[in-house]
Design a protein around this nucleic acid. Structure first.
Lengths: 214, 214
DNA sequence: CAGAATACTATACGAGCGTTCAGTCAGTGG
DNA sequence: CCACTGACTGAACGCTCGTATAGTATTCTG
């Protein structure tokens, strides 16, 4: 599967193919032989580089975690002030990720499986995201842009949960809406609706969309 | 694993144990031998009753779908008028399911795996839920309790997605909140926060909780 | 350029998988 | 009482899995 003019090392190619296959089918279902074939090498070489299937899985895990952590790093520090500002750029985790990742990136799919797996990596990642959500809510509350609610812990969890649902149900949502919600087009449909509810609840009448930026 | 005084047929016991194991570990990971052992029978008997592992899987699928469909049936027809009424009973799918299922029921877990699997059963079920969500939103809009939003299709999908997130992220949410969000206690924390946002957005100051019903 | 290290392949092994099959046992109708 | 049927067992089959190992190419290094 290696295309001509591929600067990655063979080791990186194997890791990337494993990531892609794991994201599509889960780590249990994908076999070492499938990974080897996809990478264009022998099964033995996969063992040579990663020691075992578990070793490969852990390395892919760490790789994905590092990529997301780098993205998350961009969000930290601004206290989530971008949220609730329809004119500004990022307004949610999903949006940030969607902007930084190509549409066909296997990372969202891998993240989905990782988050739902019963592993320490999943727990750590979710805790990290939750803390981020709490900080963002605190920032919004301090700026007077939102209330922390009666139960701030639950409210932060709820906001995070709503956001992650876009990831988890991506395929199902794409089917009923006819648009991938993580694509650019999908985001322009999804984000205003979400922001409208967050701004004024379900009863509020949303403003008319404007075609051009004034 | 069969307890004394078990009125179920052996076939039903196998089906139930398979459901429990499938919910916990996924259909791919669980082996016929594990199922047989859990049901207290030989592997051959599982084959005898269900023909193949795939046959067993399909029967469990259908069984779970039937149970959920029965619950969904209770919701149909009222147009979702219960929603947004903090005093009334059901206000979301999650709440209905949580009320009808024991805390340790394997069904939510099975539903989670089913919904995220790339199967026709998953597509059909999600479509069914989505239609239900659209009907509920229409009902709310007709009753003047909510706006359909700028993009009703997206708004209905968003409400459904938020609701299902509770199912999908149940374990992770329980970890950070210290309460299972699908338990009775968890619901009394979660629901008011959700309703508050739906009623007035993030900025609205929530009313103080009242200990007794006046 | 020799030699060591590393990249890589081919083959094989044992374990565990879904499935098959011959046979035992209990109940049932004629 | 016999023949038949469905429930059920236990051993075995063929296959695929992850992994080990021996050996060959390639690259690095002094």
């Amino acid at each position: 599967m290696r295309s001509i003019r591929d600067d990655r090392t063979t080791r990186a190619v194997i890791r990337d193919e494993a990531l892609r296959l794991f994201a599509a089918g889960g780590t249990e279902t994908v076999t070492m032989r499938q990974i080897a074939t996809a990478a264009g090498v022998s099964p033995g070489l996969v063992m040579h580089h990663f020691g075992s299937k578990e070793g490969l899985r852990q390395e892919v895990d760490q790789y994905v975690l590092d990529v997301f952590e780098a993205m998350l790093g961009e969000l930290t520090g601004d206290g989530g002030a971008e949220l609730l500002d329809p004119g500004a750029g990022a307004s949610s985790l999903s949006e940030v990720f969607a902007r930084h990742l190509p549409t066909d990136s296997p990372l969202p799919g891998y993240l989905r499986r990782l988050l739902l797996s019963d592993t320490d990596a999943a727990r750590l990642l979710f805790r990290r995201l939750y803390d981020l959500s709490r900080d963002a809510l605190d920032g919004l509350a301090a700026a007077g842009l939102a209330s922390s609610g009666r139960d701030p812990a639950v409210r932060a969890a709820l906001l995070l949960s709503n956001d992650l649902a876009l990831f988890l149900l991506r395929d199902r949502l794409a089917e009923v809406l006819g648009t991938d919600p993580l694509s650019a087009d999908g985001m322009t449909r999804w984000a205003p609706e979400m922001l409208s509810i967050y701004a004024g609840g379900l009863s509020a009448v949303p403003p008319q969309p404007h075609e051009d930026t004034p």
